[in-house]
Design a protein around this nucleic acid. Structure first.
Lengths: 136, 136
DNA sequence: TTAAGTGCAAATTATTTGCAGTAAG
DNA sequence: CTTACTGCAAATAATTTGCACTTAA
């Protein structure tokens, strides 16, 4: 299985039509199988740099669509921008406060021994752990 | 010590002038000694409802000033709004996704046994734990 | 053929800022 | 007095949306 079938399958898994724009963006996101963290602007820059003709509005709409299709996760770390993560399991993040960058933190080094129980009538949707880093 | 001296002291601790507006907002935030979570809009509504004359811009500026003075903590849980917490120690939060509300989670029920170590040259500024709740 | 997707440009939302006036030290 | 603070209204920044056009199924 090559990279383009992988990308096409990834879109199909979300029930999304494989348009030229989506294939281009998806290729940049998951084409190489590595985890990636982007903002709308950073993905737009990446896409433009790669010579792809995709409008900024479509990048926004597409990221939202990928998210709603369960293909991406939105991570909230900075009030002013939305970050999207190609990795879908619940895992901790490093947020580099000086560069406003988001990266994965090694999940196996995090051990949550006790978690507050959800209040009555509620259940835990997700537990976000963000380790904020500053220059030492 | 009554509520108003407490509020005045709280401002003084941050090195901020006790103006009418700040005393009013601080009174609503920490006047009763309870922990509180607000957004600029919610505090503005609270203040207006209490008959205080404080402009929305001043609410924004004041929350930011309190934060910079180390009197409040900003908590990022929702990309679209900023939340401020009067409780200053590192503790977990419940975020109620249906009502977009933030509350404290019992800190003693959370046990982080292992935490990923900070990369070289970096140190952990803070660890944010947000337990996202949905209706069960 | 037909409903979904795209690209502009205009609209929205949360927040910040410039600047003239007001008040605290 | 002098510098910080306040309040508007205008500016910004990230994101969304209306609508005519294009394209996948």
């Amino acid at each position: 299985m090559n990279s383009s079938t992988h990308v096409a399958d990834w879109l199909k898994a979300g029930g999304l039509r494989p348009t030229r724009q989506r294939l281009a963006l998806a290729g940049l996101l998951v084409g190489d199988g590595l985890n990636r963290h982007v903002t709308a602007e950073s993905l737009f820059a990446l896409s433009s740099g790669a010579g792809e003709k995709v409008s900024l509005a479509t990048v926004y709409n597409t990221l939202r669509a990928f998210c709603e299709a369960g293909l991406l996760n939105e991570v909230v770390v900075d009030g002013s921008k939305s970050y999207f993560d190609t990795r879908m399991d619940d895992h901790p993040h490093f947020y580099w406060e000086d560069s406003h960058t988001l990266t994965d933190a090694p999940a196996d080094e995090l051990h949550i021994a006790g978690l507050p129980k959800a209040p009555d009538g509620m259940e835990v949707a997700r537990v976000d752990v963000v380790i904020r880093l500053r220059r030492a």
